[in-house]
Design a protein around this nucleic acid. Structure first.
Lengths: 366, 366
DNA sequence: CTGAAAGCGCTTACAG
DNA sequence: CTGAAAGCGCTTACAG
């Protein structure tokens, strides 16, 4: 079970330039790549020995190892992952399930995952669900069935459908940005409630009393938690919740724009807007400008996430930062630990948010 | 880079015994998933028949098929891709090689790839090279060796090293944003030279004569082509090329910022800046603002790519749009065609750029 | 330290 | 239309 030994590195050399280097018959068609049998024959040892040498087994005579390694190199050998996986039970692949690729929130997490994985021998197989329910289950099933050794789920929806299965199979997985009610999964989260609370309080402390809220998808826990943070900040400061100040959203710029339009069409428009995520905040900024209102002079706006665009819009968006890259990183670390040790216990890791004050908030105008 | 966030708290949970849900023997350990043998036994047919039925073979008696299908469903059968791949020679995976995940240029192409692939049965295995030479070769080798059925290369560097091998093996691949000098590969490109020409001409027609150029990585063809487009536009309008107006870059926001600083430190500063890509344009905008110069009143700026952020910064960035999503889409279409028909000939597809005029350019002030 | 053998889960000619 | 058999390229006990 514990096959954590790093496999000896095989350096693949592409015979550059000089065309007719190949010693073998070069049949211009797609010829087979060399297998361990070819190496065995060439090196005059058994294929078992080749396999053991290549997979880093320690009890191989130095001279044998050298011979095998050099002929592997000479032949341009590359291991066949499928075969290795079938026989050995590990695929060296980890599955990553993301909702889509159009939100930098996802991209940043992916970046963190990628970065944390570069040191390892794992590669990632990427599944996008694009919020199509049911897809996630299919993917999860496929992944469990040898397609990957572990699974990272980013903000999954409807995860109940397959989490049980994953757990039953004792399949290694980590949830990112998703609560696990029963705390039986390893999950990486940020403190959305507190982040939203602090963001809202910041607005309140600036003097705002009329604070609109651009909601997110209610199926997503983080959206719900942020809303709760917003509400409790208002409550703690004795500011009544106004229904007309809460507009629905779905995390996109477009719907953020529409939500802000709704807010700005109100008789008594808010002096500040809390957007559930940066993307919708960007849409809101557009709507605000269309109404010839200045940010932050006439109306303040704060987002959530701190995607790269937030630092680059004008005025720069103040936002509640969640450590996206780090989340991806932590998730990989947990998964790797679990992969090495099947008994690695499930953990709930909660990361801090951070209020990033830039230029989009000011004291209320009137 | 930014993993400075401390962990808030970690809760360790002792997983209590699970409930008895499974109808099958539930051995609390990870039991094997059903294979075709299990189905065969249960359905009372040979495993060959099961395999044939499951893989869509047509000559199976309807009643047999139904029986097999229903028991497969009942058992919760999921095919093992590795085995299928080993035996059948296809992995249903396509490899995607990208430089990194921090530029939306890449993300958008990925999105296009993903979208085009959703209809198919292929999944993507993602490799990031992060500009580390050599990595690409390793990945390409691995991919060729059964890890995937085809390969998509996004703006690859040093591709000569392995393109030959790919071709020798007659392995299906498509290049995105990369020239193939000898036109033996299928490649999807946009007309960088012309795009840059038009962007520059636009600036010239506004009245600019002093146009700075924020260059890109010179190893990247598209960067070179854009520079050429810039130069020929100047030449065609009898505007001498000024060395001090050309500053090096690497496609990042940070270096775009630095490049613009250099330009703004000049005695005779440019009245407009052409940035090789949007990300560096965004950096330049920051630098410009730091100098208390207004965009576009005091200085105009135009980018290249039209990443989502371009439409969202303020002022909105005028840019030369390349159809990123479409590029990914086309690449998949070509690859799929090649996968279905090994004789599908290599094509060079050149997509048009489009000048997107927004708010960052105006006539020169003085 | 190293061979021979069995097997991972499937596909695919080869025979009926 | 359906079985029995061989094999995909590897790993891993099992014996030396």
């Amino acid at each position: 079970m514990d096959k954590s030994q790093p496999i000896c590195y095989i350096v693949i050399v592409f015979t550059s330039a000089c065309k007719k280097v190949n010693t073998m018959a070069d049949s211009s068609k797609n010829k087979k790549l060399p297998t361990i049998y070819d190496i065995a024959e060439e090196a005059g040892v058994s294929y078992s020995t080749v396999s053991r040498t290549l997979s880093g087994f320690e009890f191989v005579k130095a001279s044998t190892r050298e011979k095998v390694l050099s002929t592997a190199k000479k032949l341009g050998y590359v291991p066949n992952q499928q075969a290795r996986s079938l026989a050995g039970g590990v695929s060296d692949l980890i599955g990553v399930l993301v909702p889509g690729l159009t939100n930098d929130y996802v991209t940043q997490i992916l970046h963190g995952i990628d970065g944390a994985l570069t040191e390892s021998d794992y590669n990632v197989i990427l599944y996008t669900t694009n919020r199509r329910q049911g897809k996630e289950s299919t993917y999860a099933a496929r992944i469990m069935n040898g397609a990957a050794d572990g699974l990272l789920l980013v903000a999954p929806i409807m995860s109940d459908l397959y989490l049980d299965t994953l757990r039953q199979q004792n399949f290694p997985y980590v949830l990112i940005d998703q609560v696990d009610q029963e705390q039986r999964s390893t999950v990486i989260n940020t403190d959305n409630r507190r982040g939203a609370y602090e963001g809202t309080r910041y607005l309140i402390e600036l003097g705002h009393r009329k604070i609109g809220f651009l909601a997110g998808l209610t199926q997503i826990n983080s959206a719900v938690e942020r809303f709760e943070g917003y509400k409790s900040a208002l409550a703690d400061h004795n500011i009544p919740l106004r229904d007309e100040y809460i507009v629905p959203g779905d995390f996109t710029t477009q719907v953020g724009y529409e939500g802000a339009q709704a807010l700005l069409a109100l008789e008594d428009i808010p002096t500040a807007i809390f957007a559930t995520n940066d993307l919708s905040a960007l849409g809101a900024m557009d709507a605000i400008r269309e109404h010839d209102l200045r940010i932050p002079k006439d109306i303040s706006i704060i987002g959530f996430d701190d995607i790269p665009a937030a630092a680059v819009v004008y005025p720069k968006l103040s936002t509640v930062r969640q450590p996206l890259v780090q989340m991806g990183h932590e998730a990989v670390m947990e998964l790797l630990a679990r992969l090495e040790n099947p008994d690695h216990e499930a953990r709930q890791i909660m990361l801090e948010t951070q209020l990033v004050i830039r230029d989009s908030c000011d004291v209320p105008c009137k």
